[in-house]
Amino acid sequence: MNRIETSFENLKKDIAAFYKPQAHHFITMNGVDLGNDVIEYQWFFCDYAFPSDITMFVTRANVDVQVPSIKNIIVSAWLPEAELVDLLGVNIEDTQKGFVLELDSETAPLRKK
């Protein structure tokens, strides 16, 4: 697994430079609560030609910081982003709450209490 560290400022630029629709498959986006309100964000890609190589873009940030969306580069990214907004209670650009969980249900179940 290739691990590429990035930051929110460079995220869109890095992924746009890396992602070739013909060559890469976007697997999913993930978030891990590291405790103390710090979330690790991960974007997983695999190569159609060399599929054992899974590339992971990683960045860490406080929970309040708005995450840039990669919907403009990868259209199908809206679904994992919408899920993360509900399950981790994070703030992602252009993404509304209420896709997986109802608005009146428990908020952010995957966060460490």
Partner: peptide, 12 residues
């Protein structure tokens, strides 16, 4: 984290 196959297919 579990990413199921249908989850990838919903946008399409």
């Amino acid at each position: 984290k579990i990413k199921a196959p249908t989850f990838s297919n919903i946008p399409a």
